[in-house]
């Protein structure tokens, strides 16, 4: 079949694309729950950042620092747009690249750590970035950066490619589509990466780094590259988030968010590329749906979470594939 996909996979992807681009807007139009656009946009963006966390899991590292890179991305984009007057669409990849460069600099020393040591140092990293954002003058301290303009139009040689978001009637729908497209590109890249030579090398590192190293895998190079890619996704998601909220504060991404990114991956299943997407949807959307229960929201949410992990410790997607997962 095409590009090595089975027909079943192609049908699945087709249904998925149909659902998010045509199905969801139709359902929302029919039910009138316009607030779901914002929820689903958030899900898409958080899923992008979670994809990065999942990738670090793929080389056997527990990453609780994605909130740091999301915050970096959000600030870089906001500063470029507000203070340097860049177009948002150029600031978006710039934010991702900046996050990746920071990841390389920090990753070189800390990626030598493993297990809980790496997990905890990344947790501390989130705190460091939050506190740095509070202390630096360019980030405006606790006041943060607000009134970020909506993404402007973009055109190449006079041909409009993207419209001006501020002039649009339905900004929510535009953001929803943008977020979904970026999410799909992210997961397509992730899928490609996992099934490439690099992906195989990553799996060898996940199982045993010394062994991988002894048969000639340049583990220190690969783990920095993977961490940089992972943080690129984090920066991308964070920058987009800042643009939708039109503001960034040091509290925009905190330790709790970093932990949530990690939980998304666990919940969806670490053995599955699309695990983090499903995990994000269930965790974030579930939380939103439970809003009606008022003060019992947290209780029900956490109870369900505990029950899921108690009976499906390998993630939601493990129902279909049985124990151990299908890599």
């Amino acid at each position: 079949m095409m590009l090595g996909f089975t027909s079943k996979q192609l049908v699945g992807v087709g249904i998925f694309l149909f659902m998010i681009f045509i199905g969801v807007p139709l359902i929302i139009g029919a039910t009138g729950r316009w607030d779901f656009y914002f929820t689903l946009t958030s899900v898409a963006l958080l899923a992008i950042a979670s994809a990065g966390v999942w990738l670090t899991f793929y080389i056997g590292r527990i990453n609780i620092g994605q909130g740091a890179f999301a915050l970096i991305g959000a600030y870089v984009s906001a500063i470029l747009v507000v203070k340097a007057g860049w177009s948002f669409w150029i600031s978006l990849p710039a934010a991702g690249l900046f996050a990746a460069i920071v990841a390389i600099l920090i990753g070189l020393p800390i990626l030598r750590l493993r297990g809980v040591y790496f997990a905890m140092i990344t947790l501390v990293l989130t705190q460091v970035v939050t506190l740095t954002a509070l202390a630096l003058p360019i980030t405006n301290g606790a006041k943060g950066i607000s009134n970020i303009p909506l993404p402007s139009s973009i055109s190449v040689f006079g041909i409009p490619i993207l419209p001006d978001f501020a002039a649009m009637e339905n900004t929510k729908l535009a953001f929803y589509y943008t977020a979904c497209i970026i999410m799909i590109l992210t997961y397509a890249a992730l899928y490609r990466l996992v099934n490439s030579r690099l992906g195989h090398l990553c799996r060898s590192m996940q199982q045993n780094e010394e062994l991988a190293s002894s048969i000639g895998v340049n583990i220190s190079y690969i783990r920095v590259v993977i961490f940089a890619i992972s943080s690129f996704f984090g920066g991308l998601g964070g920058a987009m988030f800042g643009s939708i909220a039109q503001s960034v504060y040091p509290s925009s991404f905190q330790v709790a968010d970093s932990v949530n990114f990690m939980l998304n991956c666990f919940l969806g299943g670490l053995g599955f590329v699309f695990g983090p997407m499903l995990g994000t949807l269930v965790l974030y959307f579930g939380w939103d749906l439970l809003f009606e229960f008022g003060k019992y929201q947290m209780l029900i949410y956490s109870t369900v979470l505990i029950i899921i992990i108690r009976f499906l410790p390998n993630g939601l997607l493990s129902i279909r594939f049985g124990k151990g997962g299908d890599k």
């Binding site: 899991f57 527990i62 939980l263 666990f266 919940l267 947290m298 979470l305 410790p313």
Partner: peptide
């Protein structure tokens, strides 16, 4: 399958 899954449980208990 992976020991780290307990982190999700621990976080769930923290929420609870």
């Amino acid at each position: 399958a992976r020991e780290e899954s307990t982190m999700l449980l621990a976080a769930g208990i923290a929420f609870f």
